[in-house]
Design a protein around this nucleic acid. Sequence first.
RNA 1: GGGCCGUUAGCUCAGCUGGCAGAGCACCUGACUUUUAAUCAGGGUGUCACUGGUUCGAAUCCAGUACGGCCUACCA
Length: 492
Amino acid sequence: MASRYQRITEERLNSLRRLRDRGIDPYPHAYHATHTIAEARAALGQGGDTAGSMSVAGRVVGRRTMGKMAFLDLRDGSGKIQLSLRKDVLGVDGYGLLDDVDIGDFVGAEGKLFVTRSGELSLEVSGLAVLCKSLHPLPEKWHGLADVEKRYRRRYLDLISNESTRDVFVLRSRTVSAIRSFLDKQGFVEVETPVLQPHAGGAPARPFVTHHHALGQDLYLRIALELHLKRLVIGGFDRVYEIGRTFRNEGISVRHNPEFTLLECYQGYADYHNMMSLVEKMLADVARQVLGTTELDWNGTTIDLSLPWHRLTLREAIESYSGVDFEDFPDTGSLRSRMLDMGLEVEPGKERGRLIDELLSTFVEPRLIQPTFLMDYPVEMSPLAKRKRGNDRLTERFEGFVGGMEVANAFSELNDPLEQRERFRQQSGSGVGDDEADIADEDFLEAMEYGMPPTGGLGMGVDRMVMLLAGQQSIREVILFPALKTKTGPED
RNA sequence: GGGCCGUUAGCUCAGCUGGCAGAGCACCUGACUUUUAAUCAGGGUGUCACUGGUUCGAAUCCAGUACGGCCUACCA
């Protein structure tokens, strides 16, 4: 604490002291601004008569003094405006306050609008109030804050000094709103289900474990929304969705954050074909609402989200990009030796489904830049999906890819409770689930025994969707406070 | 977990084969009543990430540690 205090620039503390000596509270409780800065700017646009006095409030982001007159740049959440301060208007005392106003401080200003000789809309200030004294200098005005680690750890500084960062998160907010409004219009009901669960199911991922003291019981942070939402379909919510944080105790990368936002929605009486068109329509609709177009710039290439997406089966895709037709290798051993022949490093213990997944992520996924659905995944990769009509070895499942990333995963949901029980059993027996995530959720199976209508289910990574719309290559650029290791040392 | 790269002033960055720690912005002092990357004159404010080693001498070379970035691994 003491060291932190010592780092504060002596001049800022002196300003603070001088303000108090003058009887000015540097941290007042409130300020009534009559206009936001954007409203103030618009006020001049109409009519031109700006005789009325108005007030605005914001952070000082620029300061140009020239003796008996000065300009401050003021910014609030809506925009930026220049304040003009003159000694002959404010008086010696009022103008003297400027000595103790630094870049970074919050001020409120009252005055009348006018346009300077050089055409800049400004507020001729008749009254200035300090609203908060800042004790640290802001990052430099031209380059902003560039150090990636500092940008994430002190996102507030990133937001203050880099407008583009702010734009990304405004876009994120609009994206989530657009998803909601799209689904709401389609008759989906939004719900919230538990984050803390006795079993973490719905996906083969390692969960975070926590402990409930009063219950004396370990709980898991959810890794998917699936099993609870299906319970709600069983309960009569034919169209239901949730947008929520999920947690996976796995590696961190440009596409993976330990906590991320997942959209899942379920539609009774629908199958995976219906979900495909839902995904297509939703992305096109969201892009139009957020960007005004279905064309995205992704790493220099243009991605077109207009309908329809390219469709091919997983088998076709893997065969055309890797040369392997997995139907020719019906068991783990044969597929494994084929992959070894290709010079791939294959970890022992991977089942056939995992091997196919590896072919997919190595050869196919990076190539799927334009929106593409891969359909019909093998049963062993998809324990919650219904078998494909006409082919027992496959399921009616698809994944959607855009920009070389998986952004959607959906299927005709398995609703045969006896088969579901059997699939869970095979899954846990195969060593895939282990005890890390107790997939065999007995409570869920019992619910399914009461009967779930035929249902299409869909999951989409919201962070990745935002990455696409914002043209960002790293998930950390679309998460305000991405996961970072705690920094230890003299800093604190 | 493995590999490569990075960490120098509040911020953005230079600093060569080892020889007194640098620039711009910010900040401080002074001038300036229409500036807007204001301008002009002056001022360097530093645990060179941390710890150890080599050396007469280390920001620089070596080793380890921390944190970060990219790749990889893990991961529907």
